[in-house]
């Protein structure tokens, strides 16, 4: 059964699941091994349940190697093949080292608090820790809905409070699949 808020807790509009993945050096980056590397950290239905998980896990900046946190609506796996994602896409923001923890917190709080105002469009967010830079992405259901994707971009700019020259790139999951980049 879906998780429920506890007595006196503040319910979320949607339940969310937090996932963690880490690529072992030397292994092939195939879809199957990606799926096998995904570890569920927990699911939460209230603001308080979220903090109870969040306060006990490492911050993105503390992770080493090739690691990702994924926070998706409960029932959506953080993979492009999921029904909710297959016609979707993502905004991609490349971050200088040192910004990942703050930006990740800002993006997930905006998601939990329903700050994007795009109905059911948001699927989840990912922070990818890499060697040279970190990559933040926000996934939505419908890549060809330009009004929605523009609205998401504008909210992202506001909640992330990034320098004005930060480049934001939108990519459909279909294109990512074709160029095998993510």
């Amino acid at each position: 059964p879906p998780k429920q808020p506890g007595v006196g807790e503040h319910p979320l509009q949607f339940n969310y699941t937090l996932w963690y993945s880490r690529r072992s050096p030397g292994k092939q980056n195939m879809s199957q091994s990606y799926d096998q590397n995904l570890k569920k950290v927990g699911t939460f239905a209230s603001v308080e349940q979220f903090w109870n998980h969040y306060c006990h896990i490492a911050r993105p900046c503390e992770l080493s190697g090739h690691s990702d946190f994924h926070m998706f609506k409960d029932g959506i796996r953080p993979m492009w093949e999921d029904d909710a994602n297959k016609l979707g896409g993502k905004w991609i923001i490349r971050l200088k080292k040192g910004l990942a923890s703050r930006c990740w917190e800002n993006i997930i709080l905006a998601m939990l608090g329903e700050q994007f105002m795009v109905g059911e469009e948001i699927c989840g967010a990912v922070i990818s820790i890499r060697y040279q830079e970190d990559i933040l992405s926000l996934w939505n259901r419908t890549s060809n809905d330009q009004q929605t994707t523009s609205r998401i971009r504008d909210t992202l700019r506001r909640v992330l409070n990034l320098p004005p020259n930060t480049i934001m790139e939108y990519k459909t999951h279909n294109d990512s699949l074709k160029d095998n980049s993510s």
Binding site: G6, G8, E9, H10, P11, L12, Q13, V47, E48, W51, N52, C55, N106, L109, A110, L112, G113, E114, Q115, V159
Partner: peptide, 21 residues
């Protein structure tokens, strides 16, 4: 329908609530 919306300040406040262990 009605949406459950929380701003950042409110969510941060809940972090310090007795319900958050």
């Amino acid at each position: 329908g009605t949406r459950i919306i929380y701003d950042r300040a409110f969510l941060m406040q809940c972090r310090n609530s007795p319900l958050t262990k």
